[in-house]
Amino acid sequence: MKKWGIAAVLYLALVIGGYSVYAEWFADEKQPESHGHNQSASYESSKSREKSAPHDESQGHSDHAEANNSSHQHGSSAAHEGSSEVSVFVKSDQDELKIFLKDKSANPVEDLEVNHEKLLHLIVVDDQLHKYYHLHPEQTGKGEFTIGNNLPDGFYKAFVDIKPKNLAYHVAPVPFIVGNPGMSTHSRGLQPDETLSKNVDGENVKLTMSSFKANEPVTLTFDLDKTNLTPYLGAMGHVVILDENAQNFLHVHPANDKDTVFETQFEKPGIYKIWAEFKQNGKVRAFSFVVEIK
Rank of each mutant, 00 (worst) to 15 (best):
A7N: 11
K294C: 05
V291C: 10
K142W: 03
F100H: 04
D259F: 02
P54I: 01
S70P: 06
N69F: 04
Q128H: 05
D257C: 09
V290P: 00
H64F: 07
W25G: 13
Q191C: 07
K226C: 05
S87I: 02
T219S: 08
P269E: 02
S76F: 12
G270I: 02
V88N: 04
V290I: 12
P181Y: 00
K279T: 05
F249E: 15
I16G: 07
K226R: 08
Y169N: 10
V174Y: 01
S45T: 04
P217S: 07
K131H: 08
K165D: 14
Y11G: 14
S58L: 06
Q191F: 01
V125C: 08
V90S: 03
T185N: 14
K104Q: 11
A255G: 11
N245Y: 12
H251D: 09
A168G: 14
I293L: 03
D103G: 05
D193M: 09
S77T: 13
S71Q: 13
S42P: 01
E81Q: 12
G148S: 12
D28V: 08
D193K: 07
D193F: 06
N150D: 11
E110K: 13
E29C: 09
H37W: 05
D28C: 13
P108T: 14
F89L: 08
D259Y: 05
F26K: 15
L220I: 01
A65P: 03
T185W: 04
V291T: 08
N68H: 07
S210M: 11
N281D: 09
S45K: 04
P137D: 03
V114P: 08
E66T: 06
L151W: 00
F262S: 09
H55Q: 04
P108D: 12
L101D: 03
S71C: 09
M236Q: 06
M183T: 01
L220N: 01
